[in-house]
Simulated assay, not measured.
Amino acid sequence: MSTQEKYLVNCQDGRGHVERATIAFILATTASKTAETAVFLTSDAAQLCTTDGASGLQAAGMEPLSDLIAQFLGNGGKLWLCPICAKVNSITEADLVEGAEIAGAPKTMAFLSSGAKLLA
């Protein structure tokens, strides 16, 4: 049995509320430095895992969102896009950045069941 910590961050915000999205990725990036970490993207956050989806997004006084996402992925973090949100936003696997995948509730629930802690 693995003793490594695991974290799941649920991110619902994107372009519509960049500050909240940034805070979610600050949590995720920090957690991913020492733990297995995944971000479940839903709703307005769906575009964040697409190529250039976070470009130009920066809340006042905060690091650019695209830089945080790059750091998170560089740390081995995983981006999981809600399948329904992908469909609603016409996002396919081909649109995703490397390290992102379309993965829904079953994968997310299995990760939580395996001992991941939810950071919201």
Rank of each mutant, 00 (worst) to 15 (best):
Ser2Asp: 15
Thr3Arg: 10
Thr3Pro: 01
Lys6Ser: 11
Tyr7His: 12
Val9Cys: 07
Val9Tyr: 02
Asp13Met: 13
Asp13Leu: 09
Arg15Cys: 07
Gly16Trp: 00
Val18Asn: 07
Val18Ile: 14
Arg20Phe: 10
Ile23Gln: 08
Ala24Met: 09
Ala24Tyr: 01
Ala24Lys: 02
Ile26Cys: 04
Ile26Val: 15
Ala28Ser: 04
Thr30Gly: 13
Thr30Met: 10
Ala31Thr: 05
Ala31Glu: 06
Ser32Ala: 14
Ser32Pro: 08
Lys33Ser: 14
Thr34Tyr: 13
Thr34Glu: 15
Thr34Asp: 15
Glu36Ala: 13
Phe40Asn: 05
Leu41Phe: 11
Thr42Asp: 01
Ala46Lys: 00
Cys49Phe: 00
Thr50Pro: 09
Thr50Gln: 09
Asp52Val: 00
Gly53Val: 05
Ala54Met: 08
Gly56Arg: 01
Leu57Pro: 02
Gln58Ile: 02
Ala60Leu: 10
Glu63Met: 12
Glu63Gly: 01
Pro64Gly: 05
Pro64Glu: 07
Leu65Val: 02
Leu65Tyr: 02
Asp67Lys: 08
Asp67Asn: 10
Leu68Gly: 05
Leu68Asp: 01
Phe72Tyr: 10
Phe72Ala: 07
Gly74Asn: 09
Gly74Arg: 05
Asn75Trp: 05
Gly76Val: 08
Gly77Val: 02
Leu79Asn: 04
Leu79Tyr: 07
Trp80Ala: 15
Trp80Asn: 11
Leu81Arg: 09
Cys82Trp: 03
Pro83Phe: 00
Ile84Pro: 00
Lys87Ile: 04
Val88Pro: 02
Asn89Arg: 12
Ser90Ala: 14
Thr92Ser: 14
Glu93Cys: 01
Leu96Met: 05
Val97Ile: 15
Glu98Arg: 10
Glu98Phe: 02
Gly99Asp: 08
Ala100Cys: 07
Glu101Met: 11
Glu101Gln: 12
Ile102Val: 15
Ala103Gly: 06
Ala103Glu: 12
Ala105Ile: 11
Pro106Tyr: 03
Lys107Ser: 12
Thr108Gly: 04
Met109Ile: 14
Ala110Gln: 11
Leu112Arg: 07
Ser114Arg: 10
Gly115Ala: 08
Gly115Tyr: 06
Ala116Gln: 04
Leu118Gln: 14
Leu118Ser: 08
Leu119Tyr: 00
Leu119Pro: 08
Ala120Val: 12
